[in-house]
Every structure is written in C-alpha cells, then in structure tokens.
Amino acid sequence: MRLTSLLRPRPAVDEDTRQLLHDVLSVYGDGEERLTLWTLLDRIADARPDTYDGWTSWTLRDALRPHGIGPVENDGRDAEGNPRVEIGVSRAAVADVIRRIR
C-alpha cells in the first residue's frame, strides 16, 4: 500500500455502495481470486438485472475506484499453459473494503 493512499480521505459509503460491494463479492466462484470487470458485470447483472441494467464495465470500474478497487494486471497462463497477461479485480480487495466499512 502506498503512503499516499493512507493520506487520501475515504469516500462516504451509502447503502447503494454497500450493496454493490456485496453483490460483487457474491459472484466470485470457489477458487476464483480475480475476475475481469466484464465477467463481474455479467454476473451481477444476471443476479440483479433491475439494478445493473445499462451498466458498462466503465460504470462498474468508476463505482469501485473511489474505494481503491480496480483491475490489476498479473501474469497468468491460458488453457494450453502459454503465458498471458490477465487483468482482473481481486476478491481480496473487495473483501478488504467490506471489512473496512463495517
């Protein structure tokens, strides 16, 4: 964690934001530690279409960003074992924010 992130004021957390964070955390499957914004959006929109209809991956990114949650790049492997870069949102980052705002 960077020192500047400790100095930055944390945004206020309303009920809609709390619900979003819980919705995002709830769509991670067993063993999934990182998901792309597109996958997260597809899953939360499937679970609650009335809430997330019309959202884009940018909308989701912008809603998570003030809380320090964003896509992180890491090296991964495809199904054949070839190296590839994966960009995703960490389950741990979402869980940490939920713990912090309780």
Score class of each variant (00 low, 15 high):
M1E: 14
M1K: 09
R2K: 10
T4G: 07
T4R: 14
S5I: 06
L6R: 14
L7G: 06
L7P: 02
R10N: 09
R10L: 09
R10K: 15
P11L: 09
P11S: 04
A12G: 03
V13C: 13
V13K: 05
V13P: 14
D14F: 08
E15Q: 10
D16F: 06
T17H: 07
R18D: 13
Q19I: 08
Q19G: 05
L21N: 00
H22A: 13
H22T: 11
D23F: 01
D23M: 03
V24P: 01
V24W: 01
L25M: 10
L25Q: 12
L25Y: 02
V27P: 01
V27N: 11
Y28E: 06
Y28L: 12
Y28N: 05
G29F: 06
G29C: 11
G29V: 07
D30Y: 09
G31T: 00
G31N: 11
G31Y: 05
E32D: 12
E33W: 11
E33S: 10
E33F: 05
E33D: 07
R34S: 12
R34Q: 11
L35M: 15
L37Y: 04
L37G: 00
L37A: 03
T39R: 15
T39F: 10
L40W: 03
L40G: 03
L40Q: 03
L40K: 02
L41F: 04
L41W: 03
D42F: 08
D42E: 13
D42N: 15
R43S: 09
I44E: 10
I44K: 08
A45E: 12
A45S: 15
D46V: 06
P49N: 00
P49C: 00
D50H: 10
D50E: 13
T51F: 02
D53L: 11
D53A: 14
D53G: 12
G54D: 09
G54T: 14
T56Y: 05
W58C: 05
W58L: 13
W58P: 07
L60K: 04
L60I: 02
R61G: 06
D62G: 08
D62Y: 05
L64Y: 13
L64N: 07
R65P: 02
R65I: 11
H67P: 04
G68E: 02
G68Y: 03
I69P: 01
G70I: 00
P71M: 05
V72S: 06
V72H: 11
V72F: 07
E73G: 10
N74E: 10
D75F: 10
D75T: 12
D75E: 14
G76E: 13
R77C: 02
D78K: 13
A79Y: 09
A79V: 14
E80M: 06
E80R: 10
E80K: 12
E80Q: 08
N82H: 15
N82R: 15
R84Y: 14
R84M: 13
R84E: 07
V85D: 04
V85A: 07
G88L: 04
G88E: 03
G88W: 02
V89Y: 03
V89E: 02
V89C: 03
S90T: 12
R91M: 09
R91I: 11
A92Y: 07
A92K: 15
A93N: 03
A93W: 00
V97G: 05
I98L: 12
I98M: 01
I98N: 03
R99D: 15
R99I: 05
R100L: 10
I101R: 09
I101L: 09
I101F: 12
R102V: 12
